[in-house]
Design a protein around this nucleic acid. Structure first.
Lengths: 191, 191
DNA sequence: GAATATACGGAGGATCCCTCCGCTTTCCAA
DNA sequence: TTGGAAAGCGGAGGGATCCTCCGTATATTC
């Protein structure tokens, strides 16, 4: 697996390690509860840590978010590789479904991700990685003839991110599934 | 035309009327430049008006946004009525295109709109009105046989809003048009 | 030209962001 | 074991924003 891109060169001191983990834990809860605009002062407070400590570990909001979603993205990348390697028939549906359901955990995050696409943002790398995985899955579906050949795989991923973005707050899965189905139908080879 | 929902019951005093118009003017520019997070303090300052005056006219950020986009939404509603009345063949494409291109003037607004869907937000009414217009256009396309009958018109509108949301920052129209095409293909009767 | 309803303005309390730097803790070499 | 350098901690503080409140000023009406 690709190493975490901003991983520190040397091991952290034990107290720093402890604080970092506690911060990630609390931040995860805060973002889930309040969306990407959650207060970082509050995160530090709830983690029982000075605000300065938070900002040393994560120089800005995006860096903190990036650390949090890295694992999610890697999970999606791994799933993509697996589906392609095993030549799974409904791999496209399963992968896009995973992206829209579980890939984007925090409110407003899908937007940040897509907005950062290509930009010189810290989130840019994550976005590219997701696009890369999407290219593999969609490309595979195209070779199988399940997706029109004139579709840009990045567009398929963006479309899914758009749906994730808009259904983020939905309690049940209904609308999410319906919109994704429309998108997938739109990608299909018209027959 | 439906009267503005938060229109004051009685005529404003002349100075109040003047200030209100000036505020809307400046706010429009500010939102276009900085997105929905533009500073309201700054809007008041640039309008040459006290912050208290701004908040009396528009009790909160959403109320101000609502006032600004009302005209846009009404334009889309009118277009929908026209396309349906004239039985235009590619009415669906034209209307969704208008929604995605011109309907969403301010960065981040599409999100606010969809997030407010059904909620007890001030933006809820605008959202419902857009859904209503969408239902007319999509329903018409269904009757013509151009859209599958199992599509919920609201889903079609939400899908379009999702695309608008994610392509808001795009300078050129390429991705916007491609994603919309995928969505429209997904709505079509498979033949 | 009052009297009264309306509207104005901006000070102020609360919150948030992020930086800076003096103090504290950890760790390792002697 | 111990002491000092390296690494890390914390929170005060400047700047910005949000929104409320209320004393003052202006329009309108009679």
């Amino acid at each position: 697996m690709t190493p975490f891109p901003t991983a520190p060169a040397r091991a952290l001191r034990s107290d720093a390690q402890r604080n970092r983990e506690r911060l990630l834990e609390v931040a995860h809860a805060a973002f889930e509860e309040h969306g990407v605009d959650a207060s970082l002062d509050d995160v530090a407070r709830r983690a029982g840590v000075g605000i300065g400590t938070l900002y040393r570990h994560f120089p800005n909001r995006d860096a903190l978010i990036e650390s949090l979603i890295w694992a999610d993205i890697e999970r999606l990348v791994a799933l993509a590789e697996e589906l392609v390697a095993d030549d799974v028939a409904d791999g496209l549906e399963r992968w896009l479904g995973a992206v829209v359901r579980h890939g984007i955990t925090y409110r407003g995050l899908a937007d940040s991700l897509v907005a950062a696409s290509g930009a010189a943002t810290v989130l840019g790398g994550l976005c590219d990685r997701l696009h890369g995985a999407g290219a593999a899955v969609v490309g595979h579906a195209q070779r199988r003839g399940a997706v029109r050949s004139d579709i840009d795989p990045a567009d398929a991923v963006d479309m899914t991110a758009a749906i994730a973005s808009i259904t983020e707050r939905d309690a049940d899965d209904g609308r999410r599934r319906r919109l994704l189905q429309i998108a997938i139908d739109g990608l299909r080879t018209s027959s």
